[in-house]
């Protein structure tokens, strides 16, 4: 990069018939190039953004598979695990029983799970998965991948652990298990107490 900006090579002086500066059209053309570069930079920054691992959890509302809507901010005061999954994803099948067990064990203490079903070919497949593992926590289909994009999820399974004040505290890439998660949940539950 060095040396490029220093290319001050345009000799002045010699004047022929014609302008010395730039015409309006020329400046517009150069400005267009600059604007294109800016737009590309913005897009690159967006593309490079990764899953949030701290800070306020982006709020969303999800249409649930068994009817009704669920808004993340309504769960303020609870410890929430947002779990992105799909029935075709083998690691999701591995973690599903553990997630249900965690939900069963810590629900009373103020913990809940939101299952975000992503890129599923049909809602029936999602329901079959839920029935197969006897899942009772709320699950919703991510229409037009809004939540997936919001959390910059690359592919299922990925999970975000949100504390009682609605901040992202942990991010799990790939499948989770009971033991690893229960300690983290207990820590967060203990925070207000």
């Amino acid at each position: 990069m060095k040396g490029i900006d220093e290319l001050e090579f345009l000799p002045g002086g010699r004047t022929k018939a014609g302008r010395k500066g730039f015409t309006l059209g020329s400046m517009a053309l150069l400005a267009a190039v600059l604007l294109t570069a800016l737009a590309l930079g913005l897009q690159l920054a967006r593309q490079n953004a990764t899953q949030p691992t701290r800070g306020p959890a982006p709020d969303f509302s999800l249409g649930l598979l068994n009817g009704g809507d669920l808004k993340l901010s309504d769960l303020r005061g609870q410890v929430v695990l947002i779990n992105f999954w799909a029935s075709w994803c083998p690691p999701c099948r591995v973690e599903a029983p553990d997630l249900q067990a965690l939900y069963a064990d810590y629900r009373e203490a103020g913990f809940t799970i939101i299952g975000v079903n992503m890129l599923e070919s049909s809602p029936q497949k999602a329901r079959a998965f839920i029935d197969e593992f006897g899942i009772t926590y709320p699950n919703g289909e991510d229409r037009e991948q809004r939540v997936t994009k919001l959390y910059r999820v690359q592919g299922p399974p990925e999970s975000f652990l949100i504390d009682q004040r609605g901040r992202v505290r942990r991010f799990y890439y790939g499948s989770v298990n009971y033991d690893g998660l229960s300690a983290a949940i207990e820590d967060l539950l203990a925070e207000t107490a």
Binding site: A86, S87, W88, C89, L119, E120, S121, S122, K125
Partner: peptide
């Protein structure tokens, strides 16, 4: 393909794509 970047669904052999093709068939 919903998962892989810019690969036509038709050519993609991942499980997700198989599922989608099944849904198309259904």
């Amino acid at each position: 393909c919903p998962v892989c970047e810019n690969i036509p669904l038709d050519e993609c052999q991942t499980t997700a794509c198989q599922d989608w093709k099944e849904e198309i068939r259904a």
